[in-house]
């Protein structure tokens, strides 16, 4: 496969995944702002921070829903906005039309100019519908790939891009919100808060999964951290995502007859995640763990680009 094709597919998968994650974050933020109490007021600020857009609104100013809709949904100049991500995913897809199935392309192309016509006021009015639409585009693309795409290199790069982006989003969320998960004694940001914990789960559509994994009932920070980092059944957990990346990288290695630095990085990360118990992560420091995992994820992205001769 052409290196350029592989690169475009990889980024297409990342951008569409990013658009979807951002849509989830906005839904989570909306959920939090309708809850009572002053503690949730700064929820929009943390949404900005998770998406790496913190600098767009000066520190100290409170962030409103209108700001979020404008910056994270509609703003074509903000490379992290949903609109930018979807445009870029489509641009990547269009550049490699022949590597996508017809259905995958239709998932990217259908109604692609929809967000252009919206201003902030109208977008806020239609927000639930628009965010669902974004999530549906991502699901449709994945579904079309699942049942229609040849299991060739292109598919591997698609899955690697998607899994890498998911791992990164989970880690970024933990990076921003780690303090709500710290044991009571060392809480940084106020009292222990049921809503804060569940907000983390909601941002990753993990609320129901949590109940199933832990037999319903009580929320504890270490169980939440366990689900999002170590659980091997939950598809947005760091462990699951690295498992997927590893599996697809192995397939590439088999097809190409050679392992690269990226393979070692993933293997190292996987064994670390396998041997850990979440108690250990808390002991060593959740924040340190998350920061380290984020830097490994970034390094991995660079190593993949190198291994397969991206641009």
């Amino acid at each position: 496969m052409l290196s350029r094709t592989a690169e475009n597919i990889f980024w297409m998968a990342r951008y569409i995944e990013r658009a979807e994650s951002t849509a989830r974050l906005i839904q989570m933020g909306q959920r939090m702002t309708i809850l009572p109490g002053p503690i949730h007021r700064e929820e929009w600020r943390s949404v900005l921070r998770v998406t790496g857009c913190d600098a767009l609104i000066e520190a100290g100013r409170s962030v409103s829903e209108a700001d979020i809709v404008r910056l994270l949904l509609l703003d074509e100049k903000n490379p992290s906005s949903i609109r930018s991500c979807m445009m870029r995913a489509r641009g990547n897809g269009r550049a490699v039309r022949t590597a996508l199935t017809q259905d995958m392309w239709e998932a990217l192309n259908d109604d692609w100019r929809r967000l252009e016509s919206y201003d902030t006021t109208r977008a806020r009015r239609d927000l639930p519908e628009l965010l669902d639409w974004v999530k549906t585009r991502a699901s449709t693309l994945r579904g079309a790939a699942e049942t229609g795409q040849l299991r060739n290199e292109g598919h591997d790069f698609l899955r690697i891009g998607g899994a890498l982006e998911r791992a990164e989003m989970t880690l970024r969320l933990l990076d921003v919100k780690y303090y709500v998960l710290l044991p009571e004694t060392s809480v940084v940001g106020g009292g222990r808060d049921h809503y804060q914990w569940t907000s983390v789960l909601h941002a990753l559509s993990a609320a129901r999964a949590y109940l199933h994994v832990h037999g319903g009932g009580s929320y504890t920070p270490w169980r939440i951290a366990d689900l999002l980092i170590l659980n091997r059944q939950f598809p947005r957990s760091v462990s699951f995502c690295f498992g997927q990346i590893g599996w697809h990288l192995d397939r590439l290695a088999e097809a190409h007859g050679g392992r690269k630095a990226a393979h070692d990085t993933v293997a190292m990360m996987r064994s670390e995640l396998r041997d850990r118990e979440n108690g250990e992560i808390f002991e060593e420091g959740l924040h340190e763990f998350v920061q380290n995992a984020l830097s490994i994820t970034n390094r991995l992205s660079r190593e993949i680009a190198q291994a397969y001769h991206f641009g």
Binding site: M1, L2, S3, R4, T5, A6, V96, R97, T98, E153, L252, H256, Y308, H309
Partner: peptide
Amino acid sequence: SFLADMMGVELVEPMDLYVDDDRVWMKTTR
């Protein structure tokens, strides 16, 4: 893209190709 697809061949851009020793090569993942 349609024709490349229907023939089952690569669709390349100039930057995907280079010439070495009077032969043309495309840059692939391998």
